[in-house]
Design a protein around this nucleic acid. Sequence first.
DNA 1: CTGTTAGCGCGTTCAG
DNA 2: CTGAACGCGCTAACAG
Lengths: 343, 343
Amino acid sequence: MKKDSSRSSRPNMKELAEALNLDRSTVSRALSEDKSHLVGLETRLRVREAAMKLGYRTDLTAAALRKGRTDTVGIIVSDLENEIFITVLRQIMAELHGTGLPNITPLIGETRDDLSATRDLLHRFLSRRVDAIISLAASDDQADILRSAAEQVPIVLAIRSIRGIDLPSALCDDQAGGAMVAAHFAARGHKYVCQVQGPVAAATFRNRALGFSHVCKQSGLVEVPSSLIVRNATTQEGRDSFASILNASPRPTAIFAHNDSIAIGLVEDLRSGGFRCPEDFAIVGFNNTQISRVLAIPLSTVDYPTVEVGRHAARLVSNLIENRDYAWKTSVFSPSLLVRASS
Amino acid sequence: MKKDSSRSSRPNMKELAEALNLDRSTVSRALSEDKSHLVGLETRLRVREAAMKLGYRTDLTAAALRKGRTDTVGIIVSDLENEIFITVLRQIMAELHGTGLPNITPLIGETRDDLSATRDLLHRFLSRRVDAIISLAASDDQADILRSAAEQVPIVLAIRSIRGIDLPSALCDDQAGGAMVAAHFAARGHKYVCQVQGPVAAATFRNRALGFSHVCKQSGLVEVPSSLIVRNATTQEGRDSFASILNASPRPTAIFAHNDSIAIGLVEDLRSGGFRCPEDFAIVGFNNTQISRVLAIPLSTVDYPTVEVGRHAARLVSNLIENRDYAWKTSVFSPSLLVRASS
DNA sequence: CTGTTAGCGCGTTCAG
DNA sequence: CTGAACGCGCTAACAG
């Protein structure tokens, strides 16, 4: 229809070529990164200058169709409000842009740990022909759909691993993290401790619990109540869970919260109850979120290796996109304990 | 090359058509949403069943090239860690999927309020031929690049407006929000008050300051210190700014923080200094973030109309994509004051 | 209701 | 070093 107006403002490659009295192929080569050496220096400069002046922008959808490569990567997160996902996400993007794939575009989707949302997202990504997928939201129930998707496109896991399928992954040693906290409690002379666990569907929390409990047994610490699991790892549920801890007998003196949100809820609730932290209850969180650093009582926490995890995930993807082999595999990075005022 | 393996697992439309002894066009129509009525019921079902069975997924990059429509929308946010952006973002996506554009895919980019990052992002979006762009990160210095981008693709603004260019927008009445807080302080009998302002580059904060100051003058409230502006609207800077308030003379008894992060920093710092909230200092934030609700001293705050803003932005975009007219224009939605324990 | 034909805008052969 | 020709996978226009 009246496409003329937009056409005049932004030419396509054909029009650019005509304006220069050159063939489209020459223009294409002159503009490309890796094949511009096949074109005369003079014409190359002439083409690039004209492209600049006329505001030419290559149509990446057309280029993708031709190349069989979209220069997009699908990224699946479970919760966009979770700082740890965002931090890793940023690291991934920074690394992708820095290394190898400068103009790759991420397609970001949120699942909220809903299986059918995950399925839809995978379908959308496949239809959009993403070059690879990174999931920061894997859980065991997704094994089937991930397996079938992995037949069509490289898939990399980050943060959360998954049982029943072996995909290249970038992980944190959550078990070691939990262990550090228990060892810290033991060293401080605590006898009765407890942990407020996140949902077990995510491997993350299962492993933190495992590592913590293991060292407790080794060191003679007793967990009371023995099992306290919240449905969502939020501040609200952290607050709510404090009551059960108060009622436990014997009452624990140190609490390992599976993430900082839960820990903050605990601290808030115990303070409103007139208890002191760390005198009455020592508390340690997980993730080293921004807020944990600026609280009135700075929170002891386990520092998550976000940089390493993000970087490795990005490198795995870039390697898979370039070579389609699995030379690089899963890596597990160590967290570290940050002891602050709350423990 | 050895594309056979993947080809056998996922057919393209041509192969699907051959398997059915039909023409590609018929298959295309049968699979489409709006043109399947042009095809016989029997064949339509036959096609859909076969597509399902063979795992056919339409190649949206090819479809986009042909249709001149990518079914993607670029979304620009300044900071992925800011809950308000995420909340509005979710609302936008929910609304887009709910109404009209069911399988649209968002391309999300973060600028961190950096101009050249914004420019790059716009370029990438234009090259990807997004059908529209929504910016939640507009600021005055972007007027030029936004104007020129707006010539190529519909652009909608949300949360932040901008001087020097009139684009359809979905906004919050920040000025009214600031005014409510001042009125609240006046009603509570405060005499000396102050506000901790966010960066002025964003219209958001400018308007909050304006509304607050205006009502202060009307009601005889005195602002001391008269101007206190943080560089980043974070908890850390909220903490840091408390010292200047303490040193002010006369010392204010009520503080309006331009967002909840700043407010939380203030509360934390005054508590560690042995002051009480609200007895010594009343504090009101802005945004009604999750954390504001679960603090030991629940924070008074201004509730942001995220649902309305997100919904309107989505509807503007959908309308612009479908019709390319500007029948719907800017709307400004009212926030509301939530008085909790901190004031 | 279905088939035929013709591109969308690029990148990559293969010649010259 | 450059031009000519082809096709990526799909949908729209036009016939029948």
